[in-house]
Design a binder for these strands. Structure first.
Lengths: 242, 242
DNA sequence: TATAACTAGTTGTCTAGACCAGTTTATTTT
DNA sequence: AAAATAAACTGGTCTAGACAACTAGTTATA
């Protein structure tokens, strides 16, 4: 389960292992997970390393610690009370659908004035544009065009995009993803969109644009997505006086 | 500065010390703070303890780490604005538009099975249905149909609806509005909708459905709205991992 | 019987190192 | 002068312990 030779840090592997068990439902809400010592002994790693993994999950709201008692799976309600910023893959997973992505293009280009302003760079500076087709259970769901801030996301390649951009940002570049401003509106499919999404021209589509920032406020991506109106609805849970 | 005899943990004292310096402006945005080793030696504590303090501040968005370079004061903390649950009136006010509402109908009717299940009442029990036209700056913006739970909202009349439902709930009935689950999807205007919204049949519209609960979890209203796709976009700000 | 003490478990804090992986600067070599 | 190398820094990960603080159950005591 834990591979000490892996380039992935041990704490990260443990974190993933625990998260998986929670998300698979192996451990339900309120279940007490193995103690830090137990876990450390079992996998023959230091307790501090196990602690690092658990601390991250506590910060993410998956676990809850109680001194003297143990560490427990947190209640789902608390996690879902706020609108979380999720990737397409996470989003589909919640809907019990298998998400796949086809990278249609990866282009290096010069920033237009709007994008430059958003990314706080000079017009004409190099950015990356990625076009992706998002599929759920193998069916076309959305067409996504992302502009990436190469000042912040150094070393981005098509390979990285095909794996997971967010993993790369948070784990390889060690940047913290922060807030995002998202806009949803209704429209109708244009010619080339309808062809790719396999719908007829003029069918309803959901246009989503999102600007995602790092914890420090810098915008690192600007995404425009076209979702099939017949297959996708955006569900959120909100609080009054958050 | 650091008191090892204090009942307050050392990492907590360090955390406070660093935070104070940032908040007092002693260290400006982008300023590189002392390295972990430097700090540890200076206060004669372990590097891991200093790290714990810094890690917390990084998670809180005060600091930003860069491997090989150093730890820096992050740019001003972005306001962690949660998605607030807002009424149409509040919503329009944010957009600097004047919101008006025309009540088209107010009907007492029997709950169908779906609504009864949602409101946790018996099928055929009495509920209210309100149809409203929402206008912004005098132009039709949305068509809204609300079902109200009369078990919870006693004394609801057309007069109340014309004033403010939320005021009545929170101030007259003294109930606390809690979370809501909202769904957004794209569609096209049907015949009667297009007529009322003054758009052509088949124009893109944004369908919103919302179920609003009290703090105790009981659902008190179920709303279906049809927004003009050319005039309305839904904007939200979200956070990743709370 | 009630209470106090003990015990074995948990997480919380902390140490004094180690090595790895990037970045920058100084030095040496070409 | 330019390029390659080395050294000196940074944060990232990890170890193998230690003791404190707290919880829950058991045992001994008043």
């Amino acid at each position: 389960m834990i591979d000490k030779q892996s380039p992935l840090p041990i704490y990260y592997q443990i974190e993933k292992d625990l998260k998986d068990r929670i998300e698979r439902g192996e451990w339900q809400e309120g279940h007490m997970i193995p103690s830090e010592r137990e876990y450390a002994e079992h996998y023959n790693v230091s307790r501090m390393t196990v602690r690092q993994a658990i601390t991250n999950l506590v910060n993410d709201g998956f676990l809850r610690r109680q001194r003297g008692k143990g560490t427990f799976v947190a209640s789902k309600k608390i996690q879902q009370k706020m609108v979380r910023l999720t990737s397409f893959t996470e989003d589909m997973k919640q809907r019990n659908m298998i998400a796949t992505t086809k990278v249609l293009s990866f282009t290096l280009m010069k920033a237009d004035s709007l994008t430059a302003a958003l990314f706080q760079m000079n017009e004409g500076e190099e950015i990356a544009e990625v076009q992706r087709m998002r599929l759920a259970d193998g069916l076309p769901m959305a067409l996504e065009t992302s502009k990436l801030n190469l000042r912040l996301l150094q070393g981005i390649t098509e390979k990285v995009i095909q794996h997971s951009l967010y993993d790369y940002i948070e784990h390889t570049l060690n940047l913290k993803v922060g807030a995002a401003v998202q806009k949803l509106e209704a429209s109708v499919a244009r010619q080339h969109e309808s062809a790719l999404l396999q719908i007829t021209k003029g069918s309803p589509v959901l246009l989503m644009t999102r600007e995602t920032k790092l914890k420090d406020g810098q915008v690192f991506e600007s995404v425009k997505s076209v979702y099939r109106g017949d297959r996708y609805a955006f569900v959120m849970e909100m609080n009054r006086e958050g």
